[in-house]
């Protein structure tokens, strides 16, 4: 499991609680003497709730078995998901992060994960483009299309050709989704991660000058990254863009 998938699993742990209660409710609703479905729902639902309750254990287990625990801990900490960790465990990873540049072991560990490998493993792009509203709309239409396609296949109306038509529409939507996602990432980036620094609004903030950053939510529940950095004469973007080695 790569680092991103691991964080996603921990970050969406509340969904397991919701799923658990939903399964328990369905189990209760379908209960009768001739139906064993409620037993499966009962066991699965209880398992989901237990997984949610043991989320701190899941975080500790992930940190212990992840090939990149420092990266995992740093992101989980910014997302506020390390609050339940035992103090000694949290202290261990915090110390590793704070002394990253002075600790030879930690430094070697970080250097073992080259950027190109990191980007490939986690399916990340260094160019971040503007959010595409149309992408959401296509995605919004894609799920009902798939649902309708399954309904058509499951029904007895096999010779109407409706399945082929709906299936074709679903495939086209899937192609549009994959193509648009790639386009949105690569065209007109607003943020670019470079070896020299972070390019944002035409200014390159060097990595050395960045002191720390926070992830917060504003009054409208929009996620905002606040980056604090020392004033080290940030150069204009053009100077950096002209150097070929600046880009990954």
């Amino acid at each position: 499991m790569n680092v991103k998938t691991n964080i996603r699993l921990i970050g969406h742990i509340r969904l397991f609680l919701l799923l658990g209660f939903l399964l328990l409710f369905l189990s209760w609703a379908t209960f009768n003497d001739n139906n064993s479905l409620h037993l499966i729902g009962l066991i699965t639902g209880s398992g989901c709730i237990l997984l949610f309750l043991s989320r701190n254990w899941l975080v500790a287990w992930s940190l212990k078995h992840s090939p990149h625990p420092g990266l995992l801990y740093a992101v989980l900490e910014k997302m506020g998901l390390t609050g339940g960790l035992h103090w000694s465990l949290a202290d261990q990873y915090q110390m590793a992060n704070r002394t990253s540049m002075n600790n030879p072991t930690w430094r070697a560990h970080v250097m073992e994960y080259p950027t190109s490998q990191f980007l490939t493993d986690n399916d990340l792009d260094t160019d971040v483009g503007p959010r595409q509203a149309r992408l959401r709309r296509v995605l919004f239409m894609f799920l009902p299309t798939i649902g309708f396609f399954i309904y058509c296949v499951a029904s007895d109306n096999l010779y109407s050709g409706m399945e082929i038509l709906i299936g074709g529409i679903a495939v086209i939507q899937l192609l549009v989704l994959s193509n648009r996602k790639r386009k949105a990432r690569n065209s007109h980036p607003l943020v670019r991660f470079m070896t020299t620094g972070l390019l944002y609004e035409g200014i390159v903030i060097s990595w050395e000058s960045i002191d720390h950053w926070e992830y917060i939510r504003d009054a409208h529940y929009h996620g905002i990254i606040v980056i604090r950095y020392y004033d080290s004469k940030p150069s204009a973007a053009r100077q950096f863009m002209s150097r070929k080695q600046a880009t990954i």
Partner: peptide, 30 residues
């Protein structure tokens, strides 16, 4: 000390992706 705020709702990314990139690049090149 200066600061800049990046609104993720205007970008084609997620908070996990963005934080991962920040942590990795800072640890590698910072």
């Amino acid at each position: 000390m200066q600061q800049t705020a990046i609104d993720l709702s205007t970008l084609h990314t997620t908070k996990i992706d963005f934080l991962l990139l920040l942590v990795h690049f800072k640890s590698q090149y910072g």
